[in-house]
Every structure is written in C-alpha cells, then in structure tokens.
Amino acid sequence: MTVLDFGDCEYHWFAYDLAIAIYHTAQTMKPGPERITGIQQFFSSFIDGYARGNPEITFIAQIDDFINYRHLFSYAYHSVFSDPSQLSSGQLSYLQDMRQSVLDGSSFLGCSLS
C-alpha cells in the first residue's frame, strides 16, 4: 500500500520546485547570521549539484522571486486552512511573522541568492 499526499501537488515551473527545497531548508535554520551563511552554502551546493544534471540555470536570476512566492503561498494556505484555536502560541507567532513579512515585502531569506 502507498499513501500519497496531494496537498502540494501542482503543475508549476521547475524553478519553483527548487525554490520549495531552498525555502523549506531555510525554515529549519535558526535566525541569525549563521542562517544566512547556511542558506547561501546550501544554495551554492544545491545549484552546483543541479547544474551537473541540467546546466541550463538561467532561471537563477528569478529564484528569489520564486522563494518569496512560496512564502506568500504558504502564508495564504495556512491562513485559510489553519484553525487558530488549534495552534500553539509559537505557531500563531510564526504565522503572524509570516503575515508581517508579506505585508512589508521583505525577503523571506533575508538575503539575495541571485
């Protein structure tokens, strides 16, 4: 038996798939200067590996936009489908931080990759 979760299934540009991997990796990193260094190191290694199989990486110039799109999508999704009464104070705070960064137009990563 195989269980499939279709929650994130969609047809999108392949660069968005890469942005999702970078976005969710960045989410696991604690805030601070080490986070930016870690994101940049991960991105560099990730793209180097990707380019070995697909050297056409001209989309890199737009990768920041795709990452911020993922952030906006995640915020919208959780705002619509989360029951605030079922969220912890930490989760509510994280959702509020997401909202504020979307309103401010600030980069989710805190740095530019392109």
Rank of each mutant, 00 (worst) to 15 (best):
S88Y: 13
P31W: 02
S85E: 13
F108V: 07
S45V: 12
S114P: 15
F46M: 14
L87R: 14
M29P: 01
L109S: 03
L113I: 11
F6E: 11
D97N: 09
Y69M: 09
K30D: 07
T25F: 01
L95H: 13
I36D: 10
Y50V: 10
Q91I: 02
L72T: 14
S74W: 12
I47L: 11
A15I: 02
Q41A: 15
E34G: 08
L72C: 07
D48Q: 15
S93C: 04
F59W: 10
Q86H: 08
Q62M: 01
L113V: 06
F42I: 08
G32W: 01
S88F: 05
W13R: 09
S44D: 15
Y16P: 02
R52A: 09
A76G: 02
A26I: 01
G53T: 09
G53N: 11
G38Q: 09
A26T: 01
G32T: 08
C111W: 04
I36T: 15
N68T: 08
L103N: 12
F43G: 03
H71P: 04
D65L: 06
F108D: 05
R35T: 08
G32H: 06
Y77F: 10
H78P: 00
F46Q: 13
G105P: 09
S85Q: 12
Q40F: 08
S85V: 04
T58E: 09
Q41L: 08
P55T: 06
S44E: 15
L109C: 06
G53S: 13
C9W: 14
I20M: 00
Y75D: 03
Q41W: 05
F42S: 14
Y16I: 02
I60T: 11
L113K: 07
L87T: 10
S74G: 04
D65A: 10
D65H: 04
F46Y: 15
S114V: 02
R52M: 05
S89F: 00
N68L: 04
S107C: 14
K30N: 09
Q40D: 10
H24F: 00
I39W: 04
P84R: 13
P84G: 06
I20Y: 06
D48G: 14
S112A: 12
V3N: 12
F73I: 09
G38F: 05
S114G: 14
I47N: 01
G38S: 15
